[in-house]
Design a binder for these strands. Structure first.
Length: 540
RNA sequence: GCUCCUAUAGUGUAGUCCGGUUAAGCAUUUUGGCUUCUCAAGCCAAAGACUCGGGUUCAAAUCCCGAUGGGAGCACCA
């Protein structure tokens, strides 16, 4: 019924009439047996038996409305006040993808209007992080490049009566906001405001005076209750030093910047949603062009804190070493853990553009990463909780093993004698009289089990219904530390066992690999070589 | 507390604007099978969802009202 109305809209006006016909037909069809129905379809309507084509997963963002190719300008405006993390990646990727999608421009703008917070170190880290992610921008600038313009626009607002200098105490201001009351400063005339603005340059101390936008103290949206446009900060700015001491607030700076930079679409995370009204109001007051704004949800991983407020104390307490800890969702942390930038991009694209909160489990990212890493990971043997296995009558002194089952990653030669290590977990399952297979080597008949095992070499034999395990030659075994990152938090509580460290043996070939290379320890999982003596577990 | 946003399988989403073509698609997860000298990858299959309650309509995941859950904002931070 729905199908008919859907495909043939002309029937929609005659719903009542056809309802009867349809139920009659359906009744007739239902009287036929399943076989008869099948036959009927085959003879007269073979097309409906064709299986449906599989729908490919969408890999791009939703189309923008009414945009022209080549005319889209987006931006990513991070504040250089911390290390970049997955949240930055989301904002940067969404904005840059839209620019790419429409052949437009993408601007990186360091949003540095709070001299107390910004640091060169962070500025550099953000650039490194974005480069690692493979994000390219057409322009790189800093908000503070345009200080003179902010002043110009600020004065324009004062002179049009749309901004005033407020000298109230901070507490009073917030009290008035809560009670939706205007203060006496807002009654002052333009001349007085100009005078006070001049006084802000030298005379007033930080906190004594601010420039406020004349919004609406009665507005439901608290952001509109005469927000701050400029305030005095005496700190030294990381690039401009002490050149300025009146600094624009975020809302003012973003509004002006987006407008003069020619931004057509500004995609910001949801927490800024209420500020759209303000940004638009400021631009309207100045008769400036407004960008289209869109909002997306913040992205966090379960058990992985993103905020400095939570991470910093952990570093201070020594619970984690630094911002590149593999348990953290910082770009550095993810990188050390072995997550590929392409995987992050795909993952973020797969989340779509929504305002519904996203608390993604880490394994969603892992699944994407695995697809990238699998074909390029050198396969190596590694044993944990090593147990000795001695093999009698071994006829060979070396063996060559392929570094990958499918990809052409070469072979490695392993020198062997009768002394081997195998994993403790495997040793437990091995009993006297059993036959097992050492991967890449051959079958072995076990003559003694227990703490130290013994066996006799058989060589070729059954390879299907047999325990197949990895091994390491004792004489060349290379000991490394295996680091296994787990969720930092279980709910609210810090997970004291979040970083497992185990001592393991691997093959000497490990030493030949480049630092940072992704490997797969056979039957264990993907890992990233962190140093000559350390590997970090990436995921299964 | 006030204001705003949001609600589809275990998880993440598509579909929602313009109600019917889909008894809700994809990915991931889980389970089974095939393949394989890895517990990986690859291939095949199965399982599994429209928060609740009203209303409008021939027809509602889709529109309206209400409830509930989740989130954000209420900074001289961004």
């Amino acid at each position: 019924m729905g199908k008919i109305l859907g495909t043939k809209p002309e029937f929609r006006t005659k719903v009542k009439e056809i309802t009867g016909d349809i139920s009659e037909i359906v009744a007739i069809v239902n009287q036929l047996s399943f076989e008869e129905q099948k036959k009927e379809i085959k003879e007269n309507f073979p097309e409906i038996l064709v299986p449906k084509e599989k729908i490919k997963e969408r890999e791009w963002l939703p189309e923008l409305e009414g945009v022209e190719h080549g005319k889209v300008v987006t931006r990513f405006p991070p504040e250089p006040n911390g290390y970049p993390h997955i949240g930055h990646a989301k904002a940067a990727i969404i904005n840059s993808e839209y620019a790419k999608m429409y052949g437009g421009k993408f601007i990186l703008r360091m949003d540095d209007t709070n001299p107390e917070a910004e640091r060169m170190e962070y500025h550099a880290a953000i650039k490194v992080g974005l480069e690692w992610l493979g994000i390219k921008f057409d322009t790189i600038k800093s908000t503070s490049d345009d200080m003179e313009i902010f002043y110009e626009k600020g004065i324009e607002l004062i002179n049009s009566g749309k901004a005033y200098v407020c000298t109230c105490k901070r507490d009073n201001i917030s009290k008035n906001r809560r009670e939706r009351k205007a203060c006496k400063c807002s009654m002052e005339n333009i001349e007085k405001n100009n005078k006070n603005w001049e006084k802000m340059k030298k005379k007033f101390k930080p906190g004594d005076a601010i420039l406020r936008f004349r919004g609406d103290m009665k507005a439901d949206n608290a952001v509109m209750r005469d927000p701050v446009l400029f305030r005095i900060i005496d700190g030294k700015h990381y690039t401009l030093g002490e050149k300025y001491r009146i600094w624009p607030s975020y809302d003012f700076a973003v509004a002006i910047e987006d407008s003069i930079d020619g931004i057509t679409h500004a995609f910001r995370s949801k927490e800024f949603e209420l500020r759209k009204e303000l940004t638009d109001a400021i631009l309207d007051a100045l008769n400036m062009r407004k960008p289209i704004q869109g909002f997306f949800s913040r992205l966090e991983f379960k058990g992985m804190p993103i905020s400095k407020r939570i991470i910093r104390p952990l570093i201070e307490e020594g619970k984690i070493s630094w911002y590149d800890d593999p348990r953290l969702p910082t770009l550095e942390g993810l990188k050390r853990r072995g997550i590929r930038p392409e995987a992050i991009r795909k993952f973020i694209m797969s989340l779509g553009f929504t305002k519904a909160d996203t608390l993604a489990p880490f394994d969603a990212l892992e699944a994407f990463n695995r697809k990238f890493v699998d074909s390029e990971s050198t396969r190596l043997f590694m044993v944990s909780n090593a147990k000795k296995l001695t093999i009698k009558n071994l006829p060979i002194s070396f063996v060559e093993i392929s570094n990958h089952p499918v990809s052409d990653l070469g072979k490695r030669k392993i020198e062997i004698d009768e002394n081997f290590y195998i994993s403790g977990d495997d040793a437990q399952n091995i009993k006297q009289g059993m036959q097992i297979r050492l991967l890449g080597l051959g079958n072995v008949s076990i003559t003694k089990d227990g703490v130290e095992l013994e066996g006799e070499f058989i060589g070729e034999g059954d390879t299907t219904n047999i325990l197949k395990i990895q091994w390491v030659a004792q004489k060349t075994a290379h000991g490394i530390k295996m680091i296994i990152p787990k969720a930092l938090f279980n709910g609210e509580e810090f997970n004291e066992e979040s970083l497992e460290e185990i001592d393991v043996y691997t093959e000497p070939h490990f030493l030949q690999l480049k630092e940072g290379e992704e490997i797969q320890f056979v039957r264990f999982g993907y890992c990233r070589k962190d140093s000559q003596n350390q590997a970090i577990f990436t995921h299964k």
